[in-house]
Amino acid sequence: MAASKAPATVRRALDMPDLRALETFVAVCDASSMVLAAERLGLSQSAVSQAIKSLEDDLGLQLMDREVRPARPTHAGRVLHEAAARLLSQARAAMDHVRATARQELAQIRLGCVDSFAATVGPSLIRAMAGKAREFQMWSGLTPTLTEQMLGRELDMVICTETSVHDPRIAQRLLFSESWVAVYPKDHLLPGPATLQGLNASASHLPLIRYSQRSVTGQQIDRYLRHVGVQAPRSCEFDATDPLLSLVASGLGWALSTPLCLWQSRHHLDAVQVVPLPPARLGQRHFFLLSREGEWSGLDDEVARVTREVIRRDTAPAIHQRLPALPREVISCPEDITS
């Protein structure tokens, strides 16, 4: 039976030149010595000799005259040297072009952020990154949608409050954390500092205005309430802070929220009172930066650094000035925790 022919794709692959072998051959011709070529390439002399022998086998031609010392290229070798030098130059130019284009693309950042971050920290972050990115595009939305867009490469980076992404190619950096706070109508009589008993008492006298279960914030607050044992029947629910805070300001209920969410809707702050809560294991929400590992040449690290700087320098001081009853640790960055 006749031997079957190799598939066309295999034959084409065998016909393609080995750029490493060509680089080795050109180095030998330029150095007029296999020993010197091996030193320049950081290879063993046997590896250099084997690379040239493989080229000769692939071409079916003798490329080096080994009868003379040092070995010299044959006529076929001289032709290959000239062609290979051009090919390697083109290959290096192609690689340089890819790197330059990639660096240029790094300046185009598509950043997705949860709404409370985009509306508060977002403007300062964009100003701070203005000299580091040619084009900075920001999307806002709910965490589940943003993470899906990240996985689908519609977004380059995402700042979210919780993630179920377990892709090892996606790096997750903790940016900062903020504690839950209780928000009451301005004229609501508080028995004293917020306690878990006080929360239960509030739940029995006023409806709890909630964030909806579609939002990660709503899910996190529900976990916190179950953890601390506060029973609060479901009433009105909202995806966003503004309508939620509007109902509290109108005396129609109380809510759990965060400093950043309140700062997003700060035009309601004069009509409410904000009370810190006792520390608890689930008493915080954490903000993370998601980015694809190794694709951003450190630009994702810069976004994380600038975000923390904006939080410490601008956002946290502004919130504390407006809400002096809140403790300083209600907003914290990783450096603050470890210092």
Score class of each variant (00 low, 15 high):
Arg20Lys: 08
Ala21Lys: 00
Leu22Ser: 01
Glu23Lys: 10
Thr24Asp: 09
Phe25Ala: 01
Phe25Tyr: 13
Val28Phe: 03
Asp30Val: 07
Ser32Asn: 14
Met34Ser: 03
Met34Leu: 06
Ala37Pro: 00
Ala37Leu: 05
Ala37Thr: 01
Glu39Leu: 08
Arg40Val: 03
Gly42Glu: 10
Ser44Lys: 11
Gln45Tyr: 05
Gln45Val: 10
Val48Asn: 00
Ala51Asn: 03
Glu56Met: 04
Glu56Leu: 03
Asp57Cys: 00
Gly60Ile: 06
Leu61Asp: 00
Gln62Ser: 13
Leu63His: 02
Met64Val: 00
Arg66Tyr: 02
Val68Phe: 07
Ala71Ser: 08
Arg72Thr: 02
Pro73Glu: 07
Thr74Lys: 06
Thr74Phe: 07
Thr74Pro: 03
His75Tyr: 12
Ala76Tyr: 11
Gly77Ile: 02
Val79Ala: 09
Leu80Arg: 03
Glu82Pro: 04
Glu82His: 15
Ala84Lys: 01
Ala85Trp: 07
Arg86Tyr: 09
Leu88Val: 10
Ser89Cys: 08
Gln90Pro: 00
Gln90Asn: 09
Arg92Tyr: 08
Ala93Lys: 14
Ala93Ser: 14
Asp96Glu: 14
Asp96Thr: 09
Asp96Ala: 13
His97Ile: 03
His97Arg: 13
Val98Gly: 06
Arg99Thr: 10
Ala100Tyr: 07
Thr101Glu: 15
Thr101Phe: 12
Ala102Ile: 07
Arg103Gln: 14
Arg103Val: 11
Ala107Arg: 15
Ile109Met: 15
Cys113Asp: 00
Cys113Val: 02
Asp115Val: 07
Phe117Val: 08
Phe117Leu: 06
